[in-house]
Amino acid sequence: MIRFTFALLVILYTLPATLTAQDSVSFKRHYKWYIPDSFVLQYAGSIGFLSAGGGYDIFHKKASVDILFGYLPGTIGGHDLQTLTLKFTASPWKIRAGKATTIYPFSTGTYFTYTMGGRYSSDLPSWYPDGYYWWSEAVRANIFIGGKVRHKVRDSVWEGYYEIGTNELKLVSYAQNTGYLTVWDILHAGVGVRFYLNP
């Protein structure tokens, strides 16, 4: 499972980056393909207290792939947690709001989070019978919706975004208990900023 996750990470990491590299031929950019288009800083969102990483624009900037490192210090979360997140976000529509501002009213996407450390097993350890637990402790799959605002300040471009989502464990809990649980019980939110390095 670890190997599978990392393979997936590498594929999803390189694929959009390659696309961006091809795109960039027609643009003025001459950076190496692996240099991210943007830096991201996120608060909450079930991947850490604060998370930071790089983003790659794909599909003519209608979507992005982010790779984030998240950290939740023990003083806030009761136990130190470190995560790696691979996130795909699509923001298909935009509305111009003035010269420097663009609103993306709707985003949707998915992210996979890997929680680091031997404490959280990726697949079932050998001392369990097959199928004893069906989920992985270390890997979470999330889906979300959200939105963002892009703002140009002189030569740089900033974005602010929010997202509201859930993970597969909370979703299955809700699906089987629609009497007691409400949608609000299973949702989690995150907010973040994105800074374009070379817009």
Binding site: G45, S46, G48, F49, G70, I76, G77, H79
Partner: peptide
């Protein structure tokens, strides 16, 4: 806002 979750395994 309680919607802001840091991690499913947070101990809060």
């Amino acid at each position: 806002c309680s919607l802001f979750e840091y991690h499913p395994y947070e101990v809060i």
